[in-house]
Each structure stands twice: as C-alpha cells, then as structure tokens.
Design a protein around this nucleic acid. Sequence first.
DNA 1: GTCCGGTTTA
DNA 2: TAAACTGGAC
Length: 231
Amino acid sequence: MEFDRSRTDFREVLLDIYDRLDAHFGDLHWWPADDPFEVMVGAILTQNTAWTNVEKALASLKKTGALTPEALLNIPEETLAELIRPAGYYHLKAARLKAFIQFFTDNYSGHVEKMQQEEWPVLRTKLLGVWGVGPETADSIVLYACEKPLFVIDAYTRRIFFRHQFAPEKMHYDALQGLFMDHLPHDASFFKQYHALIVNTAKHFCRKAPRCDGCPLKSLKPPYEPAGVKQ
DNA sequence: GTCCGGTTTA
DNA sequence: TAAACTGGAC
C-alpha cells in the first residue's frame, strides 16, 4: 500500500489533527517537572515505563537531595539504583543516568543554560552519542529541557498515525519525525503541546485495544483515501 | 529478536 | 493474573 503524503494540504491535515486534540484536551502544560534538569532525568527514567512509576523515583531522588548534577555524579551507582527502583529497569537506568550526568558535566559543566546555547542539531547528535540515550530520549531533552523546536516521536505517535493510515507501522523514527518537521512550523511550544496531545490521545482512546468512542479523531479521513470508502 | 523490571490498570 | 507502561543496547 502506498502512503501518499505528497498532497500539498498535508500541513492542513496535521493542523486539523492538532486543533481537534487541542480543543478536546486543552493546554496540557508538558513536561511536568520543576526545572529542565528534572526533565532530563525524567526522560531517561521514563524509557518504556509508566509515568506514575517515574514520579515515585523522582520523589525519592528529591527527598534524598540526589536530584542535582553534583549529587548524581557522586552517588554510588548501586545507591542510585535503589532510589529509582520504582521506575523499573533500575540497574540499567542507574547506569544510563550515570552516563548522561558524566556527559552533562564534561560538556556543559552541569549547567542547563550552557546546553541550551548549543545549536540543536549539534546538541541532538551529541546526545545520541551518549550510551543509553536514543532518538526519543534525545529529542525529549532537546524539546522539553532546552526549548528547541524538534518534534518528538514515540510509540503512541506511531500507533495513532498508523491506525489513521498516515504512515506505515514500522516507519523509521527519523522518517516519521520528518513527516511532522517538513510540514509544520518549527515552534517549540507548538511541538511540546502536539506531542503531549498525542500521548493523551493514545492513553484515553488509541490504546492497544482501541476505544474510538468519543475520540476527537474518530471522523478523521486518511489523506489519500477517497471519502466514503469503507475500510 | 531478546533482555531489562517494578508498578499500575483492566 | 495479564497487559501495559512517554525505549535502547546488544
């Protein structure tokens, strides 16, 4: 099956989807965190993990005063692992946090402001070089911690856009990202809200077992499909 | 393709 | 009791 994204009004389709979701959910104020550093730590902790469990891990880090670059640099990895245990994959994530903090300290002296001064394509490449940081984690940090206009793709984005037949199921991360980046204005606040809306939509309606009742996208037509054709 | 994993949700 | 959870490395 061909996925025709060449039509000139694909931008209008993406904006239509945004408007529908924004009207339904309103301003979601993502990413939920006290500061950019907490966003970065949360981005690693939330890898394949429910956010409610990440909140517990972040709470225990705060409670013990460990949620600073200096503290995380010096804390023993095993101690860190126990603190973040509720987030799951805790041995793995302790190692990943350590790798990221080392990078953050070496390159930006542990200052988010210095990181924010980096050109985002450069920053993204550097982040992808850190062990434990893949495309979604890197882009979450670039967008939500550094306020740079980069569209974040996740499993929810894939699910929703595949089901509505805008993209093949296993479309590569960068290709799917390009679908948004090539057709939408590069605005950080807009991208933040769009991704947040996608996550909410997937949690409420576009679950693994779909609940299309009441979904703002229920009446959405695939861009290439003639109106009225039943799937 | 497999492994990492405690916790919540259905 | 099983599925799912704001992935990434090997």
